[in-house]
Structure formats: structure tokens, C-alpha cells
Write a protein that binds this DNA or RNA. Sequence first.
DNA 1: CTGAAAGCGCTTACAG
DNA 2: CTGAAAGCGCTTACAG
Lengths: 345, 345
Amino acid sequence: MGVTIRQIAEAAGVSRGTVDRALNNRGRIRPEVAERIRKIAKEMGYRPNQLGRALSMSKNNIKIGVILQSAETPFMHELLKGVEAAREEVDSLGGTVLVYKIPHISQSDTISAMELMREEGVSAIAMVPIDEEKVKERINLFVEEYHIPVITFNSDVKDTKRLCFVGQNALQCGRAAAGLMGELVGGKGKVAVISGYSTNTSLSNRVLGFQTEVEKRYPRIQLLGPEYCYEENPRAEKITEKLLEQYPDLKGIYLTSHGEEGVCSAMRKYGKAGKIKMIANDFMGKNYELLREGSIHFLIGQDARIQGYEPVMILFRLLFNGEEPERELQYTEIYIRNEYTIPEV
Amino acid sequence: MGVTIRQIAEAAGVSRGTVDRALNNRGRIRPEVAERIRKIAKEMGYRPNQLGRALSMSKNNIKIGVILQSAETPFMHELLKGVEAAREEVDSLGGTVLVYKIPHISQSDTISAMELMREEGVSAIAMVPIDEEKVKERINLFVEEYHIPVITFNSDVKDTKRLCFVGQNALQCGRAAAGLMGELVGGKGKVAVISGYSTNTSLSNRVLGFQTEVEKRYPRIQLLGPEYCYEENPRAEKITEKLLEQYPDLKGIYLTSHGEEGVCSAMRKYGKAGKIKMIANDFMGKNYELLREGSIHFLIGQDARIQGYEPVMILFRLLFNGEEPERELQYTEIYIRNEYTIPEV
DNA sequence: CTGAAAGCGCTTACAG
DNA sequence: CTGAAAGCGCTTACAG
């Protein structure tokens, strides 16, 4: 139990309101008095009680908006749990979180979601953006004209006024895969890259990070691809079959995105499952299962929950305490898992 | 802004105190009334506001004690940051956290720390225990006689009445290392194990997990050791030199504990650094540096902060909300890191 | 068994 | 510029 505003008021011989004005620089107070009160507060080691503060400010009702893209995917589903956790916390501190889920990826839906949020009176927005000019402009409009701070998460848009980004460093993720693959195949042989979409920046960056690092560190590895499977298993299967036909001595496969079942069933068909070293991404779908049975050797992944939780809490801390985020790019942990580090539950 | 107790009181035509008694099963209320109020609350979607609750209960001042062993080590230093984070959070919710740091490992100091905590009136204790009969007895005494719940963290003591354990599954940690080593050396060749102390359960379990898994999964790997370096670099260096002399074809080294500098300088002396595959534990000391320069291939580690943070928060949730911990053994994430996944800062 | 009132620590109109 | 008072949502003696 610390020092309270009342104790300071008594010590200074003023009212509690006056102490409040002094300590929170609200003006309407004689500077000398303010100074004296601040000094006393400091001497007494005053630290404001967040509970009292939050409770009394809960009338103001801080409102935070969250906009998700591709809300139907397993990853976003997991991420949403993080958003929900943050929502409960914000809720219990007297705030509100509004979530808008866009099922697929749509520029117009994104913009109308932003407008909806504004009409609802949110004081800040955390969103998965789209890399389109109109969306970028709208973000800048919100930040500069409406003074509604915007945080991007999961994927980022460059050259906007967004406050910060929370998500994976995709380039580094590809590099980590390169380091693993290098060791797995003993630094030489043919290694194929299979990706999801050529248009997705995160995925292209994983590919790029992988390729450049392999070339740099393991010059005796021969890179094949990237081929694109559009995260569809049948396509991934066909691509893999073709690779296995064409390169019977294939040593490794790096899959940047989903399609793991297709790849593995092709490898199984050719008796190569477990023999060809395979690295895949994310802890969704059949990935853990395939890791357990030995078809996948390593999984690289991100903490989806944190990606949902942090952006909301960063905004809340900003609005509630005026705490600015520590850095502009908040890269989340890159997890490496083998079959022995699969979490329970 | 959710439904408040006042709104329920109005809807039910009773006082707020009565609603409180109904919703929190405090007795002194006619069962039918209680039932009716609970029903109304449910219909209205009532969720208690933690702020109001916490503020009004902050008179009671929940007090949690934390006892650390070997508080001078880098790991404990990091863990302490997690404790401090929890302390701030508990503090801002009206509670208090008392920390007692035991510099080395001492049975008598542990027991007197526990007694001190009790005199200070803590309502629960989170502690790094020692696996000694007297300490175990004292834990049981606290739980059963004094009704002070005890959580162990970082290391556990079996067969006590402690509420739960938060820390690493050391056996699994050794297995994860085995899986990595198997891939690194291509499933065959001589691999040495160097450990810290034969008397430390965590370390012995890492060794055991490593050995049994290697034997099972990679029968063509020939295991050497374990040798014990007492976490001292000179000893680790001598052990490694001897190994390199005796087994010029050594393929890998698994170091369960500190001594990394000694091992690496011996390897360097023999021109083997980076050639012999090395796996080490924990993200302390020179480990990241050696990972970057390529002498260490993988690091396996635990999140020290979480190990400090969680036990305190589990106790707080228990005392404040009556939330029981979800499970008895709360194993923390086993992190695998290569040079590409070293966190910034 | 139930209600009215005070209080937790802070903020915020409203007077003066 | 300053103070007195009400209020945030909950809990808790104290009466009855």
C-alpha cells in the first residue's frame, strides 16, 4: 500500500484536486504551488495507483478497433484468441475493443471497416493492412486528419504514418530456415523451395531470405524453384511429384506456407518421406502431425496469439498512460521446433 | 461498459449488497433470492469489473512471497526481471510482492526465508526449492498447517504438497537436443556429453533424456561421457582437450550447462571449432556470441522471465479470484535457436 | 436474511 | 487559481 493523493494533500495542506492538477500538469494552478506539491510527492515516494485511476477514468471509455483480413484462416483464428485475451484485459480495465473480421482480402472492405470504426468513435485502430495505395492513403488520413493512431500487425505497409508494426521479420524467418536446411543436408545437394503466392510480401521475403542465405553460407547447395502451390495441397503434391521425377537426388524441401499434406503425400508415394529433409512454416494444419511422424524435420513459426494480443495492448497503454511503443518495428519471436518441442494441449 | 452490480440490483429490486452476496456466494441470503439474482445477472450478461473489485479489496492487501536460490547467477538475474514485472502488476492491483534472494544454495537459509515470509504475513509463497528432506517437510507444514499455498519454480521437489510447478521439462530438453544432434551429425559417429554437476536433477535429466533418445533413434551414434565440468571453463576446456586427443574423429558435443567458453577454446586450439557440432543450453554467458561465430550450432533454452513472472501471477490469480492453476506441472516452452533467431537487444 | 452507507484512490465538473 | 463534492464499480462492516 503506497502513498495516496490524500496523504500528499494533507502534507501539503491543499485539497486532493489541487494535488491532482499539480501531479498531472493539468494547469489551472499556481506554478509555485504545483512545484511544491511535486516535490512533496517525490519525497514521499508517490506512485499513482492504477486502479483508482482506471476506475475513475472508465467513464471516458477508451475504445480500440481491430481489423482482421482473411479471418477464416487457421492462423487468424489463433491470432484472434490473442485479440480476445487483450479484449478481456482492456475490458476489465474499463475499455472496449471492437473487432471487425474481413473474411477474405478486400481493399474496399478494409476501407469501409476503417470508416465504420471511426463512426463508432474508436480512439485507435490495430489492423492487418493491405499493400494498396488507397489503403495507405486512408491510414495516413486517419493518423493525420482524424488523429486516430493506427498500428499494423501480421503484415506491414511501408511509407505510411502507422505508429508501429507488430509481426514477423519474414526475411529473417527465411534465413533461419536456410541455416537449418544447410545443417540438415550437410551443406550440399539440391534443395527446392515451394511457396504459396508470389504476390504475398511475407512469403516472398521468406523465399528471398532463404535463397540469399543459402547462396552465401552454403554455396554447394543447388537451389530449385520457387514453385507456387497457392497453399493448396493438390497443387503442392503435383509440384513435388514433378520435382521428385526430375531430381531423384533431391535432398531438401523448404515450404514457406501451407501445402504440407500435398508435399508429404508425394514424398510418401516416392518412398522419400523422412529421407528428404523438409522444413515448413507455422504451427497449423497437419504440421505437428507430420513433424511427429518424421516427414517434416523442422517447423518455423510465429506466436499467433502474441500478434493478436500485443497491438491491442500497445494501443491501450498509449491511450491510457500515454506510453509510446518502444520501437517502430516490433518483430515477434521466430520459433524453431522439432518433434521434441511440440507444446502439449 | 458492461452491466454493473447496481443495474442488476435495480432489475432485481434489491440492494447492491444483496447482489454481491448472491453473485459471490457469501451466504446470509435466502437461497431463492440468490438464485433469482444469479439468473438475472446471467441474462444481463454481467461480468464483474475487476477494477472495482480490486480497488475495493485493496485494503486486504494480498501479500505474496518469492524465494530465490543462487540469486547471483545470470539465469536467476534474468528470472528476477520476470518477478519484478509481476511485482509491478500485482502492485498496481493493490497487492504486495516480497522477494528474498538467497545468494547460494542453502537449506537453512531457505527454511529461515520461509519463516521470515510467514512472519511478514504473506498469504502464499513461490519458491525455488532444494531437494532436501527438511525443506520438503517445511513446505508440507506451510501448506497443511499454515494454509499458505506454495508453488515451486525452476526446479521441483517431488512428493510434497506444493500447489504446482513452473519450469522446464529437463528430460524433454535433453530429448530435443538428441533430435538436433542426430540431424547435425547425420545419425552416426562419436558424440560426447559434458554436464555441470552429477548431483543436479535438472542436469541429470537433460543427460538422461539425451542419452536415451540418442540410443533409441540413432543407434549408430556412439555416446561418450558424461563428463562433469562443474560449470567451470578451465575444467570444461581440459575435458574437451582430452576428448579431442583421445577421439580425433569426435563428431559432436552436447553441453548441458555452462562451460561453453572452455569447450570452444579447446576446439579452437585443435582447429575443430565449427567442425564439431556443438549444442549448448541457456541464453546466457557467451552462448549467443559463440552461436554467432559458428562454434555453437544450436542453443536450447528456457524463458527465464516467464519462469519468474508466472508463479507470482498464478498465486495472485488464486488469491484474488480464486482461480486454481490449470495443471500441476506447467512446463515452459523449450526454445531452439540458431544464429538467425537470436533476439535483438 | 436484507439494506443503507462508507470506503478503496483517483478524476472531474461545478462553484467560488 | 483552489476547494468541496460526486462518482467510477465493487466490498464490507454495521444496523436492523
